[in-house]
């Protein structure tokens, strides 16, 4: 359900960008999805297939997901570490003064369209 809502937003933004560029059909959409963004990639692509095929412009259009690994920064020692493996606590110094550097993205990176001749 969550992913379907996100898909509606993606469709809206992609259609807008396509129209602005005078494009009538989009071949693929590339997404940057952060590892801790709460999006399940498989659900997103499933919802995408269902919803995109209902749109003339996006019929058969593929959704490609490029994952972004989550990285947390520690203010205690200044080092970065992988979020999923260690969570809130810094594995280098044990500090809990840490914050997410990246990995929360739900971003449309680019759309791929057939080249007009």
């Amino acid at each position: 359900m969550h992913e379907l809502g996100i898909v509606f937003y993606i469709i809206r933004d992609v259609k807008k960008a396509a129209e602005e560029n005078g494009v009538t059909h989009v071949s693929s959409v590339v997404m940057n999805i952060g590892e801790v963004s709460t999006i399940v990639p498989e659900y997103l692509t499933d919802c995408w297939r269902w919803a995109a095929d209902k749109e003339e412009m996006l019929n058969g259009c593929e959704l490609i997901i490029e994952p972004i690994p989550a990285v947390t920064h520690c203010d205690g020692c200044g080092k970065d570490y992988p979020t999923v493996a260690h969570g809130k606590t810094c594995p280098h110094c044990g500090s809990e003064k840490t914050w997410l550097l990246r990995g929360n993205e739900v971003e449309i990176k680019e759309i791929v369209v057939p080249q007009s001749r």
Binding site: I6, D13, A17, N21, V23, V106, E107, K109, V112, V113
Partner: peptide, 9 residues
Amino acid sequence: KVIELKKSV
């Protein structure tokens, strides 16, 4: 052709 968006949903 690739059209770059770089846009948060």
